[in-house]
Protein backbone atom coordinates (compact mmCIF):
# COMPACT_ATOMS: atom_id res chain seq x y z
CA UNK A 1 0.00 0.00 0.00
CA UNK A 2 1.32 3.39 -0.81
CA UNK A 3 0.03 6.82 -0.05
CA UNK A 4 0.02 7.94 -3.64
CA UNK A 5 -2.81 7.83 -6.16
CA UNK A 6 -5.54 10.28 -6.92
CA UNK A 7 -5.90 11.84 -3.52
CA UNK A 8 -9.53 12.69 -2.98
CA UNK A 9 -12.26 12.61 -5.54
CA UNK A 10 -13.11 14.32 -8.76
CA UNK A 11 -9.59 14.52 -9.98
CA UNK A 12 -10.67 12.24 -12.76
CA UNK A 13 -8.01 12.00 -15.38
CA UNK A 14 -8.40 9.58 -18.22
CA UNK A 15 -8.08 5.97 -17.07
CA UNK A 16 -7.17 3.56 -19.89
CA UNK A 17 -5.27 0.60 -18.54
CA UNK A 18 -4.42 -0.36 -15.00
CA UNK A 19 -1.62 -2.86 -14.70
CA UNK A 20 -0.74 -4.03 -11.26
CA UNK A 21 -0.37 -6.90 -8.88
CA UNK A 22 -3.52 -7.76 -7.00
CA UNK A 23 -4.20 -7.78 -3.31
CA UNK A 24 -6.94 -10.23 -2.34
CA UNK A 25 -9.39 -9.60 0.46
CA UNK A 26 -11.05 -12.96 1.03
CA UNK A 27 -14.38 -11.68 2.32
CA UNK A 28 -17.85 -11.30 0.83
CA UNK A 29 -20.40 -8.56 1.57
CA UNK A 30 -17.66 -6.10 2.53
CA UNK A 31 -19.74 -3.09 3.59
CA UNK A 32 -18.66 0.53 3.46
CA UNK A 33 -18.62 0.65 7.28
CA UNK A 34 -15.61 -1.71 7.05
CA UNK A 35 -13.98 0.24 4.21
CA UNK A 36 -14.25 3.47 6.22
CA UNK A 37 -15.53 3.16 9.81
CA UNK A 38 -18.07 5.81 10.75
CA UNK A 39 -15.86 7.68 13.19
CA UNK A 40 -13.75 8.89 10.26
CA UNK A 41 -16.77 10.54 8.64
CA UNK A 42 -16.60 13.76 10.62
CA UNK A 43 -14.26 15.20 8.05
CA UNK A 44 -15.16 17.99 5.69
CA UNK A 45 -12.50 16.95 3.18
CA UNK A 46 -12.07 14.28 0.53
CA UNK A 47 -8.36 14.04 1.23
CA UNK A 48 -6.28 11.87 3.49
CA UNK A 49 -8.79 9.08 4.03
CA UNK A 50 -6.23 6.39 3.20
CA UNK A 51 -5.45 6.13 6.92
CA UNK A 52 -9.10 5.25 7.56
CA UNK A 53 -9.18 2.44 4.98
CA UNK A 54 -10.30 -0.80 6.67
CA UNK A 55 -9.09 0.78 9.90
CA UNK A 56 -10.72 -1.75 12.22
CA UNK A 57 -9.30 -4.66 10.24
CA UNK A 58 -5.88 -3.10 9.71
CA UNK A 59 -5.19 -1.89 13.24
CA UNK A 60 -5.83 -3.32 16.68
CA UNK A 61 -7.48 -1.38 19.50
CA UNK A 62 -4.14 0.19 20.41
CA UNK A 63 -3.61 1.36 16.84
CA UNK A 64 -0.87 -1.15 15.99
CA UNK A 65 -1.06 -2.76 12.54
CA UNK A 66 -2.37 -6.33 12.55
CA UNK A 67 0.34 -8.28 10.77
CA UNK A 68 -2.11 -10.90 9.48
CA UNK A 69 -4.38 -8.47 7.62
CA UNK A 70 -3.79 -8.74 3.87
CA UNK A 71 -3.27 -5.05 3.26
CA UNK A 72 -0.57 -4.94 5.93
CA UNK A 73 1.57 -7.68 4.41
CA UNK A 74 4.76 -6.53 2.69
CA UNK A 75 3.63 -8.03 -0.63
CA UNK A 76 0.57 -5.76 -0.64
CA UNK A 77 2.79 -2.70 -1.04
CA UNK A 78 2.22 -1.02 -4.37
CA UNK A 79 -0.76 -3.19 -5.32
CA UNK A 80 -3.30 -1.11 -7.21
CA UNK A 81 -5.98 -3.74 -7.83
CA UNK A 82 -8.14 -5.03 -5.00
CA UNK A 83 -9.91 -8.37 -5.47
CA UNK A 84 -12.70 -9.08 -2.98
CA UNK A 85 -15.72 -11.33 -2.47
CA UNK A 86 -19.19 -10.68 -3.83
CA UNK A 87 -21.44 -7.72 -3.00
CA UNK A 88 -18.45 -5.46 -2.34
CA UNK A 89 -19.29 -1.98 -1.04
CA UNK A 90 -22.78 -2.72 0.27
CA UNK A 91 -24.41 -0.61 2.95
CA UNK A 92 -23.90 3.09 3.52
CA UNK A 93 -23.71 5.58 0.64
CA UNK A 94 -20.52 7.17 2.01
CA UNK A 95 -18.32 8.17 -0.92
CA UNK A 96 -15.49 8.21 1.62
CA UNK A 97 -15.11 4.50 0.78
CA UNK A 98 -14.03 5.31 -2.79
CA UNK A 99 -11.89 8.24 -1.66
CA UNK A 100 -10.09 6.08 0.93
CA UNK A 101 -9.32 3.30 -1.56
CA UNK A 102 -7.90 5.80 -4.05
CA UNK A 103 -5.93 7.57 -1.37
CA UNK A 104 -4.37 4.23 -0.44
CA UNK A 105 -3.35 3.62 -4.03
CA UNK A 106 -6.15 1.25 -5.13
CA UNK A 107 -7.27 2.08 -8.68
CA UNK A 108 -9.56 -0.84 -9.50
CA UNK A 109 -11.79 -3.16 -7.47
CA UNK A 110 -12.65 -6.60 -8.83
CA UNK A 111 -15.55 -8.66 -7.50
CA UNK A 112 -18.40 -10.80 -8.82
CA UNK A 113 -20.84 -8.12 -7.77
CA UNK A 114 -20.41 -4.59 -6.53
CA UNK A 115 -23.17 -2.77 -4.67
CA UNK A 116 -24.98 -0.08 -6.67
CA UNK A 117 -24.18 3.10 -4.75
CA UNK A 118 -20.52 2.20 -4.24
CA UNK A 119 -20.27 1.34 -7.93
CA UNK A 120 -21.54 4.80 -8.88
CA UNK A 121 -19.33 6.53 -6.34
CA UNK A 122 -16.27 4.67 -7.61
CA UNK A 123 -16.88 5.72 -11.21
CA UNK A 124 -17.33 9.35 -10.20
CA UNK A 125 -13.79 9.31 -8.88
CA UNK A 126 -12.00 7.29 -11.52
CA UNK A 127 -11.82 4.13 -9.40
CA UNK A 128 -12.63 1.31 -11.82
CA UNK A 129 -15.27 -1.11 -10.51
CA UNK A 130 -14.96 -4.47 -12.28
CA UNK A 131 -17.77 -7.01 -12.08
CA UNK A 132 -15.92 -10.15 -13.19
CA UNK A 133 -17.36 -13.52 -14.18
CA UNK A 134 -17.40 -16.19 -11.48
CA UNK A 135 -14.61 -18.34 -12.96
CA UNK A 136 -12.19 -15.46 -13.45
CA UNK A 137 -13.02 -14.12 -10.02
CA UNK A 138 -12.50 -17.53 -8.44
CA UNK A 139 -9.06 -17.76 -10.08
CA UNK A 140 -8.10 -14.29 -8.89
CA UNK A 141 -9.22 -15.04 -5.34
CA UNK A 142 -6.71 -17.89 -5.05
CA UNK A 143 -3.86 -16.11 -6.86
CA UNK A 144 -3.05 -13.06 -4.78
CA UNK A 145 -0.24 -10.99 -6.22
CA UNK A 146 -1.07 -11.94 -9.80
CA UNK A 147 0.00 -9.33 -12.33
CA UNK A 148 -3.29 -8.32 -13.90
CA UNK A 149 -4.37 -5.77 -16.46
CA UNK A 150 -7.69 -3.95 -16.31
CA UNK A 151 -8.24 -2.62 -19.81
CA UNK A 152 -10.99 -0.04 -19.64
CA UNK A 153 -11.19 0.64 -23.38
CA UNK A 154 -11.61 -3.03 -24.24
CA UNK A 155 -13.54 -3.80 -21.04
CA UNK A 156 -11.38 -6.85 -20.50
CA UNK A 157 -9.40 -8.21 -17.63
CA UNK A 158 -6.08 -9.74 -18.70
CA UNK A 159 -4.64 -12.52 -16.54
CA UNK A 160 -0.92 -13.28 -16.38
CA UNK A 161 -1.23 -16.28 -18.74
CA UNK A 162 -2.79 -14.03 -21.36
CA UNK A 163 -6.36 -15.19 -20.81
CA UNK A 164 -8.88 -12.41 -21.30
CA UNK A 165 -12.14 -12.04 -19.44
CA UNK A 166 -14.64 -9.47 -20.62
CA UNK A 167 -16.49 -7.40 -18.05
CA UNK A 168 -19.41 -5.10 -18.63
CA UNK A 169 -19.12 -1.39 -18.21
CA UNK A 170 -21.84 1.03 -19.18
CA UNK A 171 -20.72 2.74 -22.43
CA UNK A 172 -21.19 6.17 -20.88
CA UNK A 173 -19.19 5.20 -17.80
CA UNK A 174 -16.43 3.82 -20.02
CA UNK A 175 -16.40 6.98 -22.09
CA UNK A 176 -16.13 9.11 -18.96
CA UNK A 177 -13.29 6.98 -17.56
CA UNK A 178 -11.34 6.98 -20.80
CA UNK A 179 -11.70 10.65 -21.57
CA UNK A 180 -11.59 11.83 -17.99
CA UNK A 181 -14.97 13.41 -18.69
CA UNK A 182 -16.56 14.70 -15.65
CA UNK A 183 -20.26 13.98 -15.33
CA UNK A 184 -21.02 17.31 -13.73
CA UNK A 185 -19.65 19.03 -16.80
CA UNK A 186 -21.92 16.88 -18.94
CA UNK A 187 -24.97 17.69 -16.79
CA UNK A 188 -24.15 21.40 -16.86
CA UNK A 189 -24.06 21.24 -20.66
CA UNK A 190 -27.68 20.02 -20.46
CA UNK A 191 -28.89 22.99 -18.44
CA UNK A 192 -30.88 24.46 -21.35
CA UNK A 193 -32.83 21.18 -21.56
CA UNK A 194 -33.35 21.16 -17.83
CA UNK A 195 -34.63 24.75 -17.85
CA UNK A 196 -36.98 24.01 -20.72
CA UNK A 197 -38.28 20.92 -18.91
CA UNK A 198 -38.91 22.92 -15.73
CA UNK A 199 -40.79 25.57 -17.66
CA UNK A 200 -42.90 22.99 -19.48
CA UNK A 201 -43.78 21.26 -16.20
CA UNK A 202 -44.89 24.49 -14.56
CA UNK A 203 -47.22 24.66 -17.55
Amino acid sequence: MSGQGAAGGNDVRGVRVIRSRTVVLPAADVDTDQIVPARFLTTTSRMGLGRALFADWRYDAAGAPRADFVLNRPEAAGCGILVAGGNFGCGSSREHAAWALLDAGIRAVVSTSIADIFFTNALKNGLVPVRADAATHAWLMVHPGAEVEVDVAGSVLRLPDGREAAFTLDPFARHCLLQGVDELGYLLSRLPDIEAWETARRG
Binding site: G9, N10, R46, G91, S92, S93, R94, E95, A98, I117, T120, N121, K124, N125, E183, L184, L187, L188, R190, L191, I194, E198
Partner: peptide
Protein backbone atom coordinates in the same frame (compact mmCIF):
# COMPACT_ATOMS: atom_id res chain seq x y z
CA UNK B 1 -27.70 8.65 2.75
CA UNK B 2 -28.62 5.13 1.71
CA UNK B 3 -31.79 4.96 3.81
CA UNK B 4 -33.45 7.55 1.62
CA UNK B 5 -35.49 4.54 0.49
CA UNK B 6 -37.65 5.30 3.57
CA UNK B 7 -39.55 7.96 1.63
CA UNK B 8 -40.69 5.34 -0.88
CA UNK B 9 -43.42 4.51 1.65
CA UNK B 10 -45.30 7.50 0.20
CA UNK B 11 -45.14 6.29 -3.39
CA UNK B 12 -41.98 8.19 -4.26
CA UNK B 13 -38.82 7.08 -6.06
CA UNK B 14 -36.32 7.83 -3.33
CA UNK B 15 -32.71 6.70 -3.21
CA UNK B 16 -29.35 7.35 -1.63
CA UNK B 17 -26.47 9.01 -3.48
CA UNK B 18 -22.81 9.79 -2.86
CA UNK B 19 -21.37 13.23 -2.21
CA UNK B 20 -20.34 13.87 -5.82
CA UNK B 21 -23.93 13.25 -6.86
CA UNK B 22 -25.07 15.58 -4.08
CA UNK B 23 -23.00 18.22 -5.87
CA UNK B 24 -24.70 17.30 -9.16
CA UNK B 25 -28.10 17.88 -7.59
CA UNK B 26 -27.01 21.16 -6.04
CA UNK B 27 -25.66 22.41 -9.35
CA UNK B 28 -28.33 21.14 -11.74
CA UNK B 29 -31.25 19.67 -9.72
CA UNK B 30 -30.69 16.55 -11.83
Amino acid sequence: DSHTSTHGAFGTFAFGIGSTEVAHVFATQC
